[in-house]
Amino acid sequence: MSAYTWWLAIGFLVLGPLVGALLAGIDRILTARMQSRKGPPLLQPVYDVLKLLEKDTLVVTHLQSLYLWGFLFFMLISGFILFLGSDLLLSLFALTVSGIFLCLAAYSTNSPYSNIGSARELMLTMAYEPMLIMVALGFFLVSGSFRVSDIVQGSPWQVLQLGGILIGFLFVLTIKLRKSPFDLSASHHGHQELVKGITTDLSGTDLALVEIGHWYENVILLGWLYLFFAPWGLAVALPISIVLFFAEVLVDNTHARLTWSSALRVSWWVTVLFGVTNLLVLPLIGHSS
């Protein structure tokens, strides 16, 4: 932990939403272009959230806001840990807890759409969680530490050593970003059978909190992706990770939604085939630590 990482972590707390909003804005423009539309302005996500903050908030139960605070709080903690260069597993844990709080918020409203949304969200958590752990374990095996600051200074070959894990991670990234074919819990296009799934009964400020939370989450995920390439230095690693990040938009626009059972099955198979296998053969590819 140096002064630099402290600045990074604080920078995440302050600028995280802005970066996240830009990512979301680019995402929306890209999607529009792929559908040969012009798309919204870059800052559209920011306008959306500022508007939501202006609006009244209707709640089904007052407690739902409490759970949303929990969601945002743990999201902040997760990113803070990551950018502080501290423990990757701990960051992952906080991320999971934050996801559970979001589900609780939706569950607490007890409307059928929210219920289905949150149940599916939990199922997706169950689907991607093992793979995310594999990522942390993979980093541990190549760099000998769970600490982000050590991973960043790992060997330049770690991407190759962790090739399988990277594939697995990109796979679950689709789930984490709630992209098709895994947009089971809250579809981006609301006028569907699921309505808005997990966020159906959130409105105004509550919904704005969720959006801000997702912005932070996107930054965190981009951070995770960046870790794979980090030893190559910022100038190379950041563009690569951003390109890979937006490759998810392509996947989003070219796939139909899967059922929950196939989503679960497929992601666990990917975890085993790419994640676990990669870890098992890692000693053969050579340790660097």
Binding site: Q35, R37, P41, K196, T200, S203
Partner: peptide, 19 residues
């Protein structure tokens, strides 16, 4: 649709009164 593309004005069809 692409021809009119109201999303460029920030208009989104939410399908949900609460939003």
């Amino acid at each position: 649709t692409p021809l009119y593309d109201v999303e460029r004005l920030g208009i989104v069809n939410t399908g949900n009164p609460k939003h």
